[in-house]
């Protein structure tokens, strides 16, 4: 088992390196951050000096290697804009993003799991079609449009919820205050999580309901309820758990847009600012972080699978 895990980790390292190379290449194509720094008060000599300070006068592959070297020594560099260490920037903003993503994942799965199981049990009945059509609807609504609708209804018309931010300025910061600010962004993300997972969970449960051992259980006279709740659900849990791993890149992408709309002070917001400002070290830091998280989630999924499914060889 340990050998299997080690092998998976060793396989993930070149993938991670590959991702950072692709990132760096794309980013450098984007244009030099120096273009953004130029201005009426900046002389050419000043720009050249700046380029040398930031190491931007070197060829791109040299820049990448020195970034890689620093990264391996635990240094993610300093933001070109705010002159603060990237790790500090990420550390400050990761909390709100994790809070948003975690809450959305939990809420989304709490909707998707019962709905998917219900739909599978009532297969090919009107109720099943209603749930499946509903899930298509949920995954067809653009997140930003749903966000606009929510703001229109709950902020502008009803005035129940704040339109953005994480805390009310001045008085805010308590648990209920943050929770109130979270309702709309979490709803937007949870709808998309639920939309894409209902059908997945439905087919996972259907597959298990058709297995021989469940037919045997049913034919032995175990009641329908007991078949479903005792035997089927326990076995459907595995595919459901693995979905969580697949959610993370999608959820992060959704968070970038949602944070932008609701001015949620998280990673998505600083990422957008870094991209438009060509703040290389910050972009690289966020890309690296997200790649590590995604690969770690994949690894965890593989390990859980190997632990539970005895047919996997390792």
């Amino acid at each position: 088992m340990w050998k299997y895990i080690l092998k998976k980790i060793l396989l993930a390292i070149p993938v991670l390196l590959g991702i950072t190379i692709i990132d760096y290449a794309i980013m450098s194509l984007a244009g030099s951050p120096l273009e953004m720094m130029g201005g009426p008060r900046m002389t050419e000599a000043g720009i050249a000096l700046k380029a040398e300070q930031l190491g931007l006068n070197q060829p791109v592959w040299m820049q990448y290697l020195s970034w890689l070297n620093e990264m391996l020594h635990g240094n993610l560099g300093t933001s070109f804009k705010s002159y603060r260490p990237v790790s500090e920037l990420i550390g400050e903003n990761i909390g709100p993003t994790l809070l948003l993503m975690g809450a959305s994942l939990v809420v989304g799965l709490l909707i998707a799991a019962p709905a998917g199981i219900y739909s599978a049990i009532h297969r090919y009945k009107k109720r099943d079609y209603a749930v499946v059509t509903g899930s298509f609807f949920a995954s067809s609504v653009p997140g930003f449009f749903l966000a606009m609708l929510l703001v229109y209804i709950f902020n502008v018309r009803l005035g129940w919820l704040p339109s953005g931010g994480m805390k009310t300025a001045g008085i805010g910061g308590g648990f209920w205050d943050v929770a109130r600010h979270m309702i709309m962004p979490v709803t937007v993300l949870a709808v998309s999580v639920a939309g894409s997972n209902i059908r997945y969970i439905r087919s996972a449960v259907l597959e298990i309901l058709e297995t021989d051992y469940l037919r045997t259980a049913a034919s032995k006279g175990v009641g329908r309820r007991a078949v479903i709740y005792k035997h089927a659900l326990r076995n459907a849990l595995l595919p459901i758990v693995t979905v969580i791993g697949m959610q993370i890149p999608m959820l992060f992408g959704g968070a970038v847009i949602v944070e932008q709309i609701f001015s949620w002070p998280g990673l998505g917001l600083i990422t957008m600012n870094a991209i438009t400002g060509r703040d290389y070290p910050v972009i690289m830091g966020v890309c690296l972080l997200s790649a590590v998280v995604v690969l770690a989630a994949n690894l965890l999924t593989d390990i859980v699978y190997a632990l539970v499914d005895p047919t996997i060889k390792y």
Binding site: V15, I19, I26, A30, P249, F252, I275, A291, V294
Partner: peptide, 16 residues
């Protein structure tokens, strides 16, 4: 390409 937060790739590319 798959294990990359897709929107990040699109955003960086769109900025380029």
């Amino acid at each position: 390409v798959m294990s990359f937060p897709y929107i990040l790739l699109v955003l960086v590319a769109a900025a380029i």
